[in-house]
């Protein structure tokens, strides 16, 4: 088997395993896993920008939240059904990425981090300012009617745990394989090379700005789909998801799972989610866990779980 097919098999196996878990796990863990799958899509999108293209953004919450509100507001106020609402979330995140990207990519390094942080903060404050529509911190709870999905003439309710789980899995699988394809394309390899040495790539004739902007837009589109899916599947959109914390979390998940690996974001999200879940049953000081995890990771484990696996055992892992 070539490394390419081997990698494809590993990814397929993971998807099949997640499928099987739906029938094996008790209700509580199925619920957690549905959430984890949607949030790992968020992490995967972030990973494309941060891991592969080397853009350390501290503002990806705005793309997730744009998806969340794009879907949530249209479903809540305009009564849009699931598909158009999802489309609205996707479009909102993508358009926002075009504007934010064109501006923020004029900077790099620390300035880029601060600019993205400030853009996201502006977005967050906007969700508070327009509290008439968004209900601010309290958030919108989508009515049952907004969460009925019709597919091939059959109608499903997104409140059903199995439907929810399966849809989250479909989204995860689609994004996973799309990103697998993307990072192995010439575009993906160019991104990694740009991360390593921008100036060299420029002198090989690559339009560095255009490549980074495209990467950011794709990344944001993935994050926005995760946000839109989150709003529709779990029926809630609140400004907490636009706060700085939701820009930091994907960074944490990706660092933990392994930056610039296709599977890392899933591992990282899963691990962190359970770590917080377990510690919060003992203490409500889960933020200490997040903080400690960040520091220990950046100090001792900068390549993360999948990164370490790739380094030690499976060099062909994408």
């Amino acid at each position: 088997m070539t490394p390419g097919t081997k990698a494809l098999w590993v990814h397929l196996c993971l998807v099949v395993l997640l499928f099987a878990l739906n029938f094996l796990l008790p209700e509580y863990h199925r619920g957690i896993l549905s959430r984890v799958m949607v949030l790992s899509v968020f992490a995967m999108g972030y990973n494309l920008a941060f891991g592969y293209a080397g853009m350390l953004s501290l503002g990806h919450a705005m793309f997730f939240a744009a998806g969340l509100y794009g879907a949530g507001l249209t479903a809540y106020h305009l009564g849009w059904s699931v598909w158009p609402a999802f489309g609205a979330g996707f479009a909102a995140g993508t358009i926002l990425a075009v504007i934010a990207g064109i501006l923020a990519l004029r900077t790099k390094g620390v300035a880029f981090m601060i600019v993205t942080l400030m853009f996201a903060q502006t977005f967050y404050l906007a969700t508070l300012y327009f509290t008439t529509y968004t209900r601010g911190e309290e958030g919108l709870v989508l009515p049952q009617s907004a969460r009925a999905l019709s597919l091939f003439g059959i109608s499903f309710s997104l409140t059903d745990p199995t439907v929810r789980y399966m849809l989250a899995l479909v989204l995860l699988a689609l994004v996973l394989f799309a990103l697998l394809l993307l990072v192995r394309s010439s575009f993906g390899r160019a991104l990694v090379a740009i991360r390593e040495n921008e100036e060299r790539m420029r002198m090989l004739g690559y339009d560095v700005f255009a490549n980074k902007l495209s990467a950011l837009i794709v990344s944001a589109a993935v994050c926005a789909s995760a946000g839109a899916a989150y709003a529709l599947l779990f029926g809630y959109a609140g400004s907490g998801f636009a706060s700085i914390q939701y820009s930091i979390l994907p960074l944490l998940w990706v660092l933990l799972g392994g930056a610039a690996t296709t599977l890392g974001p899933i591992f990282g999200t899963l691990f962190m989610f359970y770590a917080v879940d377990i510690t919060s049953s003992y203490t409500d000081a889960y933020m200490v866990v997040v903080g400690l995890a960040l520091i220990l990771l950046i100090l001792y484990f900068p390549k993360g779980i999948a990164g370490a696996i790739r380094e030690r055992w499976l060099p062909w892992l994408p």
Binding site: M287, V288, L292, L294, I295
Partner: peptide, 20 residues
């Protein structure tokens, strides 16, 4: 620079939580 930002974010969380 970038690693430092990540680490000081971690510090922020820890200090804030301990204060709480």
């Amino acid at each position: 620079p970038q690693a430092t930002i990540v680490a000081t974010i971690g510090l922020l969380y820890i200090i804030q939580q301990l204060a709480l």
